[in-house]
Simulated scan of single mutants.
Amino acid sequence: MNNTLQMISLVDLSIAFIPVIIALFFLYIWSLNVKQASYALSRMLIQLLLIGYALSYIFYSDNVWLITAILFAMVGISCWIALRTLPTYRLRLFKHGFMAILCGGGFTLFFISQGALALSPWYQAQVLIPLAGMIFATAMNSISLCAERLFSEMNNQVPYPEARKNALNAATIPVINTLFAVGLVSIPGMMTGQILSGVSPLIAARYQIIVMCMIFASAIISAVIFLLLSEKTMKLMTKQKADPKF
């Protein structure tokens, strides 16, 4: 059995966009937002190509300050994206989202990197940054769902404790669905990548269990922190919207 993956040429890469074009075609004929989807795909392509070059440099860097700066930048960017569904209040909620991702995601990252994996040094970029990316992205999605649902509930005059409960429930649905599906419906990305590179499925499964634990924890802890920090701000914004003179 050949365990080496073939080098993907630009021609091979272009084949992957054939089903993408078909998908965009359906969005177009059904009058959906094909411009936003095309823009997102374009950004994905540019961002991944750029990060490929950047990571080649970062992974060989032994500069603790550079790695730390990158981690904080990842937190800030993920927070900004998470609150894009609330453009009017994005700046007011940014500090809460930033602290939620930093504390919830950072707490999880610390235990995974220093406990389960025992990285030495702790700023080993080749492992730390991909892990941080998965954790912060999960926290980002969780806070995005949480903020949107919370604001919707409070606009409908739902008492804050009930609105908070509903918001947290909405934020947990995707990650819980992922836990149910893993191994039955899908083989997750990290496990798939390791198997394709020739790692034993049993070892790959252990790494994937670590990934699923950190995804679950970061999603819920970050959402809870965001809800706790944002209570006064959300109540105030809801009152101001209901009564502009407030």
Results as ranks from 00 to 15, higher is better:
218 S>I: 05
30 W>K: 15
185 V>T: 08
213 C>Y: 05
121 P>R: 00
160 Y>P: 06
136 F>I: 02
169 N>D: 14
76 G>Y: 07
238 T>Q: 15
35 K>Q: 13
102 L>N: 01
149 R>G: 00
143 I>M: 02
17 F>I: 12
196 L>H: 09
120 S>K: 15
203 I>R: 11
125 A>F: 05
205 A>S: 11
205 A>C: 03
82 A>T: 04
117 L>W: 05
11 V>W: 10
107 F>R: 03
156 N>M: 09
160 Y>K: 04
61 S>L: 02
92 R>Q: 12
78 S>A: 11
225 I>D: 05
198 G>M: 06
154 M>L: 01
227 L>P: 09
47 Q>E: 11
126 Q>E: 15
240 Q>M: 09
6 Q>T: 14
45 L>E: 05
37 A>L: 06
16 A>K: 08
131 L>H: 02
193 G>H: 04
164 R>H: 15
128 L>H: 00
194 Q>C: 02
182 V>N: 11
25 F>P: 00
210 I>M: 15
245 K>G: 12
185 V>N: 00
86 L>K: 06
10 L>Y: 14
203 I>G: 01
37 A>P: 00
42 S>Y: 05
128 L>I: 02
191 M>H: 04
226 F>W: 00
42 S>C: 12
138 T>R: 07
44 M>I: 02
43 R>Y: 14
123 Y>A: 08
132 A>C: 08
194 Q>E: 10
236 L>P: 12
173 I>N: 14
47 Q>T: 13
235 K>M: 13
62 D>M: 05
161 P>N: 03
81 I>S: 09
12 D>I: 02
91 L>G: 09
191 M>I: 04
31 S>G: 08
144 S>T: 04
112 I>G: 00
111 F>R: 06
185 V>H: 04
124 Q>K: 15
124 Q>V: 08
26 F>H: 02
35 K>S: 12
135 I>D: 10
186 S>E: 11
